[in-house]
Design a protein around this nucleic acid. Structure first.
Lengths: 342, 342
DNA sequence: TTGAAAGCGCTACCAC
DNA sequence: GTGGTAGCGCTTTCAA
């Protein structure tokens, strides 16, 4: 058994008072030393004694007590995304976390499985986060933002396809994705354009605006073209059904929602003897590696978040000067990577 | 402006004292009512007055204050997995979260980007979680588990490929995956077996044991076969290089680490004119949908966690009766799904 | 340079 | 039935 005891039932977790006792100083001094408080001068020997005592005891400050005393936390809460943590969101998350950590925030993802929106908002509020960044597929109601701001959150930010009343928004406008895809297909001379609508739950908030953007792009182009939504489940059978009906649909192109659905559909089309791109052009989205491995190589819409400030800096700014009118940012850039399938 | 004010600078967040004042009762009564404390009888009119006051003010209890008073939290902390949130881990996570929430725990993922292991453990300990479940690719040292248990964590559980001293472990023994793949290939009469070793950072803790399992499976089979590790980056170029050298390697099969690497490599082999499975058999792992869409259809090793108790129940049990010897569970079942590529 | 003490919001013990 | 109040661990003002 090591010298650091496993607290066998009786022993309790060390507090700053324990450190003070062991170092032979007061709790105030402990606090000064461990927080490197500059507004007070502590002699070097004392500092060392305190640090050693803290290390010996394995002392770790109690975040709850600290923030209770401080009257606020530095916690940024991210409701954990429900369904598909796509590569874009994954990158966003990593960047945000590192950025915020650098600014000395604590980043916490809160899983809210099986709560309704307002219930979840109250659960988040109990932690008194200084900011909440809510991904698009998590419901955040105006009531929810109210609860959060009233509980002390200085910034409530949504990432969804649509803004939420009362909250700042990084509007990831999915219409751009559909628009870019369709403009590309039109420029290739395609006029009968299918748009895959995934039937998986949770994808509708992304799929609907992509379709809307596709429709709008056709309208704006003035071309004599049409857009047709194509419901599809992420299963081979569903894709085979669609492919079997394909020639009755009179389409010569399809925007397949994303690369994974594109792969599914393209495979089904090819198996049904429909030439890609000869007879039907296919384009996906996300520019996954897998698209480059298909034959024909899959065209895709890439997305990136182009914000003036980094999201972390934006949050920091909103936290430091709260109370401004809700901001709306539209940072999504959609670009087509044309390969062989379109 | 709605009746629920946005706390314009001056107003502060409502406390139970505010609720008490508005309801004309004491803070104690507020606490009794809002927590449905049964050991004390409160009249129905009073209950209603309190609830109404709380709702009017938008009162949300302060988790930090509550747990400070209680002396413990019900927070289960999961260090956020760094790199690849594979489908297996994704499912595990969702199940764990719902299970724990049902048992009234608060589940929180803590992003520890860019901290070293011990630093991270201290950061987690500040939140005084009652349990910590650490995924495999997050480093957890014996020192780290010490810090956590000493700070009051009743259960520290690792999910990694290897157990950690002092912590309970759900050992996801990756060797099984390599073993299953290789036994399958041997049964197909293959004798020169390559094992892809991804060069991406963070995958080594998974890749190494898979290789080890592959080697052991060959030894145990007594077959006159050999295993050869094949470094590969997840890039077309790297795969093309490997494919160009393929015939010099004298291999007739490859376990490609997972389905994505398998797809990459299979494509490169085919492009280099190497027949799959005629000349070389290929098998991946994870049984992704994409494998079924390839031609030939990709064989794969599926994994599932088969635990006696659900992980949530296991955590609850460990929390309720702490202090037992570290448990080791080996819940990984690896099964081969043989398709056309092997 | 250090220490004593107040008080953050909450719950639970004990009086009334 | 309801209220007063101590005290969880921490920081910070004020005194010494």
């Amino acid at each position: 058994m090591s010298q650091l005891s496993e607290q066998p039932a009786g022993t309790s977790v060390p507090t700053s008072a324990d450190v003070a006792r062991l170092a032979g100083v007061s709790r105030a001094t402990v606090s000064y030393v461990l927080n490197d408080n500059t507004s007070v001068r502590i002699s070097e020997p004392t500092r060392r004694r305190v640090r050693e005592a803290a290390a010996d005891l394995g002392y770790v400050p109690h975040a709850a007590a600290r923030s209770l005393r401080a009257g606020h936390t530095r916690m940024v809460l991210l409701p954990a995304a429900r369904s598909p943590a796509g590569p874009l969101y994954q990158r966003f998350l990593t960047g945000l976390e590192t950025g915020l950590r650098r600014l000395d925030y604590t980043v916490v993802q809160y899983g809210s499985a099986g709560m309704d929106a307002d219930e979840a908002a109250r659960a988040w509020a109990e932690l008194r986060p200084v900011a909440v960044v809510s991904p698009g597929n998590i419901a955040l109601t105006p009531y929810g933002t109210g609860v959060l701001t009233r509980s002390g959150a200085k910034a409530v930010i949504t990432l969804g396809p649509q803004p939420v009343e009362g909250a700042h928004a990084l509007v990831v406008d999915q219409r751009e994705v559909g628009g870019a895809a369709v403009r590309h297909l039109l420029s290739r001379g395609r006029r009968g354009i299918g748009v895959v609508m995934p039937q998986e739950p949770g994808l509708a908030p992304f799929a609907e605006p992509r379709l809307a953007g596709a429709v709008r792009a056709v309208e704006e182009s003035g071309a004599d073209a049409r857009v047709r939504p194509l419901p599809l489940r992420y299963e081979e059978e569903s894709a085979a059904d669609l492919a079997a009906r394909w020639r009755t649909l009179g389409l010569d192109a399809v925007f397949a929602y994303d690369d994974e659905y594109a792969m599914l559909l393209m495979r089904a089309l090819q198996d049904a003897g429909i030439g890609v791109p000869a007879e039907t052009a296919v384009i996906g989205a996300d520019d996954l590696m897998l698209g480059r491995l298909l034959r024909p190589r899959l065209s895709s819409v890439t997305m990136e978040l182009a914000t003036a400030q980094s999201p972390a800096e934006m949050i920091d700014r909103l936290v430091q000067s709260p109370g401004g009118a809700p901001e709306r940012h539209y940072p999504l850039r959609a670009t087509v990577v044309a390969r062989e399938s379109s």
